[in-house]
């Protein structure tokens, strides 16, 4: 891990910074000469690998592994797209109008439109702009990612109290972090939590987009990605 770690005294956030996966590189798909299809194929391959990494990452979120296997599955099945969306959005911060899926896979509005990703572009840009305006820190990004998973409103939890404790631990960490910042921005933690509805909405749009791509049958999707999409519909 080559990420610089800022110590801020908060154990949970330090752990989250440490376990934040290094960004993946896209593997350009050379099976087609159609640039738009190539972008979609490359993107689907990248997102499948992101999912694999995310499942490994989740195990290292403080409190996650203490949950039952059934509840771990339930949280991931409902929250995975929100976590993926936050990864893309955090990489896109500071990149103007492009969506940065990976350092070597950046798509602008025209490219997204040509690839059939207009809706996804609009939704992701709205969230990116919001976080850009808030000047989100890396600590806040990693905490929001973990919170999105913890707060994914999974149904049929085995132990809702344990999931509540998991959420409380992350919430406490965020509050402690914000209080430790100078100057203290009043209501900062609340402002961050108030972005979660837009994150949920954006993730739902993303799920719709990939379900549509799958139904159109132009883009073969990996087994894990399909399995996770299936859990969302």
């Amino acid at each position: 891990d080559t990420h610089p770690i800022k110590t801020n005294g908060n154990k949970v956030i330090s752990q989250l910074l440490l376990t934040e996966p290094a960004p993946l590189c896209a593997t350009p798909d050379n099976s087609t000469n159609d640039d738009n299809l190539k972008a979609l194929l490359t993107l689907c391959d990248l997102l499948n690998r992101e999912l694999l990494v995310m499942i490994g990452w989740a195990k290292h979120i403080p409190g996650f592994s203490a949950l039952s296997l059934v509840d771990q599955m339930a949280l991931l099945q409902s929250g995975w797209m929100e976590t993926l969306v936050l990864s893309v959005v955090s990489q896109s911060l500071g990149y103007g109008e492009e969506l940065v899926f990976a350092g070597n896979l950046r798509l602008d509005q025209a490219q997204c439109r040509a690839s059939g990703l207009s809706d996804l572009y609009t939704a992701l840009r709205q969230l990116t702009t919001k976080y850009q305006q808030m000047n989100l820190s890396q600590e806040e990004v990693v905490t929001l990612k973990a919170m999105a998973l913890a707060n994914s409103d999974a149904e049929n939890l085995e132990n809702a109290e344990a999931v509540q404790r998991f959420q409380d631990g992350l919430h406490e960490a965020l509050q402690e972090y914000e209080i430790s910042q100078q100057p203290v921005e009043l209501h900062r933690a609340g402002k961050l939590l108030m972005t979660l509805p837009l994150l949920r909405q954006t993730a739902n749009r993303a799920v719709d987009t990939f379900c549509r791509l799958h139904l159109e049958g132009r883009v073969p999707m990996h087994k894990l990605f399909l399995e996770m999409l299936d859990a969302k519909i």
Partner: peptide, 20 residues
């Protein structure tokens, strides 16, 4: 669970996931 067997297996594995 049967329907979501890859996720199930990945969560059970303590080692890094290998199956795509």
């Amino acid at each position: 669970k049967e329907k979501h067997k890859i996720l199930h297996r990945l969560l059970q594995n303590s080692t890094s996931p290998v199956e795509l």
